[in-house]
């Protein structure tokens, strides 16, 4: 319970930073250090019906906003979410310059993006691979907390955005409200908050450099 409270406070704290960073962005001043931003509870087709085609939520990292579906053919969006699948704006998924690769490390300590090694979405799979352990998450299966999708800590998505800027993203939660997976409320599936809501932190370098 204490952990949960602290976590809640830290989320509030980071959210304040996000608000501040949004204000700072208006300056467009290159001297201002880049801020870590947090996107909270981005829906990823939470009401999906079985058999229905997936519905994606399109997200623009540069503005930190969810776009309307009509923007899906533009280069503006950077990530699209539906269930555990994450698309980038490149290759078969979109007209943009988007590409991605997964690196291992601590988000804050990754001072630059790799110069190469990126791939785009294609017929033979996505730049961000799907499946437990392959990409950004592990599926717990029968182990407690059962049937949960947990982001793999230390796995950072290195991206080029639809506009061609470098960005880094770390998925924090797949559940509404970013719950503590070790809490009793999460372990009990009947009280677990809804799945298919992404919380992630990210940082974009708008000047085209690979350094954050």
């Amino acid at each position: 319970m204490i952990n949960f409270k602290k976590q809640f406070l830290s989320i509030v704290g980071i959210s304040c930073l996000v608000v501040m960073s949004c204000e700072n962005e208006a300056d467009q001043s290159p001297e201002v250090p880049l801020e870590v931003q947090i996107a909270n509870d981005i829906p990823a087709d939470p009401n999906a019906e079985r058999g229905a085609p997936p519905s994606f939520t399109f997200y623009d990292l540069e503005s930190g906003t969810v776009l309307t579906k009509s923007d899906s053919n533009s280069v503006q969006w950077d990530l699209a979410f539906s269930g555990t699948t994450i698309l980038i704006n490149g290759g078969t998924s979109g007209p943009g310059l988007g590409s991605a690769q997964l690196v291992e490390g601590i988000f804050d300590n990754l001072a630059s993006a790799p110069a190469d090694g990126y791939s785009v979405d294609g017929q033979n799979g996505f730049a961000i691979p799907t499946g437990s352990g392959n990409g950004w998450y592990n599926y717990t299966g029968g182990s407690v907390p059962i049937n949960a999708i947990l982001p793999i800590p230390g796995r950072v998505l290195m991206l080029t955005t639809g506009d061609g800027n470098y960005a880094k993203v770390e998925i924090l939660s797949y559940y509404e409200g970013n719950p503590d997976p070790s809490s009793q409320a999460f372990i009990d599936q009947s009280s677990r908050s809804a799945a298919r809501y992404y919380t992630f932190k990210f940082m974009v370098q708008p000047n085209g450099s690979i350094n954050f």
């Binding site: 830290s10 989320i11 988000f107 793999i152 800590p153 770390e170 924090l172």
Partner: peptide, 25 residues
């Protein structure tokens, strides 16, 4: 140094050390 975890108090990602390893379930 390829294994990380999210610290539930700080919500920060950190390295898992061998002394943290709890063996098989």
């Amino acid at each position: 140094e390829q294994v990380f975890r999210r610290n539930t108090t700080t919500n920060q990602t950190e390295l898992v050390r061998l002394t943290d390893y709890g063996g098989l379930p």
